[in-house]
Amino acid sequence: MKALVFLSLFVAGSIAMAEAVPGKPAPAFETSAADGKTHKLSEYAGKWVVMEWYNKDCPYVKKHYGSNNMQELQKTYTGKGVVWLSVNSSAKGKEGYTDAAEAVKVAKDTKSNATAVLLDPTGVVGKAYGAKTTPHMFIIDPKGTVVYAGAIDDNNSSDPGVIVKSKNYVSTTLDAAMAGKKVEMAATKPYGCGTKYAN
C-alpha cells in the first residue's frame, strides 16, 4: 500500500514536472494578457516566440530592466518579427503579482517592448513550461519546437554592472537559430528568484 501511495505520488510529481524541453514541442497554452485579450501559442505558429518569466519586484528582473538590457533585447528581436511574451506567474498575494491594469502601467513605466504581458496567476503556464526562476527564458521556433530553455545570460550576479561582460544566451541563440545555424547551448541552468507560484 505504501509503495502504491509512493508510486502515485511519484507519477503525479513527474506530471507536475513536465517541462519545455529543447528539441520537443513547446507546451500549448491559452491565457489572458494585460491587453485584455486571450493569447494562445498556436496563434503564433510560423513565428519565433520568446517566453520571458517575469516578476517586477525580483532583483534579478530589476537587474535586466533597470539596466535597459531586457527592453533592448525585446526591441531588437520584435523588430525582426519575433513575438516576445513576458509571463507573470506570481500568484495573488505573492511578490510581483499584478492585475491587468497594473501590468499595463508597469510595462509602460519600464518602457517594456514585449509583444504582450501574459497573466498566469494560477501558474498553469509556468508549471507547464517548468519555469523555475525569474527571469527564465524559453525560445520556440516557427514549428513550435523549443530551441532554448534556461538563463538569460551566463552571469548569475545581481549586479547590473556585469551585463556588459556577460554572454547573452537569448541573443546568441536567436541569432544562430534564425540564421539556420546550430544552437550552441540549448539548455542552461536558469538563475534568479524562484517563481512565486501559489502554495
Binding site: 519586484d57 525580483c58 532583483p59 534579478y60 505573492k94 511578490e95 550576479s157 545581481s158 549586479d159 528568484c193 524562484g194 512565486k196
Partner: peptide
Amino acid sequence: LEWLVCKEECIPGI
C-alpha cells in the same frame, strides 16, 4: 562581497 539572501523574496547585497 556579493550575496543573495532569500525567504521567498530575495534581497541581493554588494
